[in-house]
């Protein structure tokens, strides 16, 4: 990952990547729930990301202090798992399934169609932060392949024609 934390990262007041100032209120609420808990790092990262949309650098610094581990350890975990993101993401996450069943039934074509519609490549976010496009190894909706997921909703039996209409629903 390109963005590694600088020394003495301040937990508060630092600018977000998107220009706003980091507000630690919800992070503090999350941390409080895990005081003294075992194996808390991943759930903390998951909830931080759910709250901020990604893992802001000041949040990582604060979590490191709270858990009394070096930031490098947190970045090690965060970059190991596909779920975590160190940069802001779109308000809506579009995950196109490329599992075996979708592969056999034209999932690549669906990914191309979504990519054309949003004008971004997989892994990228639209400039207006409305969508992030991702590829996913399997959503488990194989019986209805090809499939994709927008936020927590799964769409099956997709055709290229259905794509624009589905995406339009998400502001």
């Amino acid at each position: 990952m390109s963005a590694m934390p600088e020394k003495n990262t301040m937990p508060t007041g630092e600018a977000h990547e998107n220009g706003t100032v980091f507000d630690p209120t919800s992070l503090e609420g999350i941390l409080e729930k895990y005081r003294g808990a075992k194996g808390a790092l991943i759930p903390i990262l998951q909830q931080t990301q759910a709250s901020y949309g990604y893992l802001p650098r000041p949040a990582v610094g604060r979590i490191a202090k709270f858990l009394k581990v070096p930031e490098s350890k947190i970045y090690g975990v965060a970059t190991f798992y596909a779920q975590f993101h160190l940069h802001p993401r779109g308000r809506n996450i579009v995950r196109v399934c490329l599992g075996t069943a979708c592969h056999v039934r034209g999932g690549e074509g669906i990914l191309d169609a979504v990519s054309d519609e949003l004008k971004v490549k997989p892994g990228e976010t639209t400039p207006d932060l409305r969508y992030t496009l991702e590829r996913v190894a399997c959503l488990g909706a194989c019986g209805l392949s090809p499939a994709m997921m927008v936020n927590d909703t799964t769409y099956g039996r997709l055709t290229k024609k259905k794509i624009a209409e589905i995406l339009k629903k998400y502001e």
Binding site: G99, H103, A137, C138, C142
Partner: peptide, 11 residues
């Protein structure tokens, strides 16, 4: 952690 693409028994 049913990760095999093409499998959804556990789900």
């Amino acid at each position: 952690d049913e990760g095999d693409p093409g499998a959804f028994m556990d789900r």
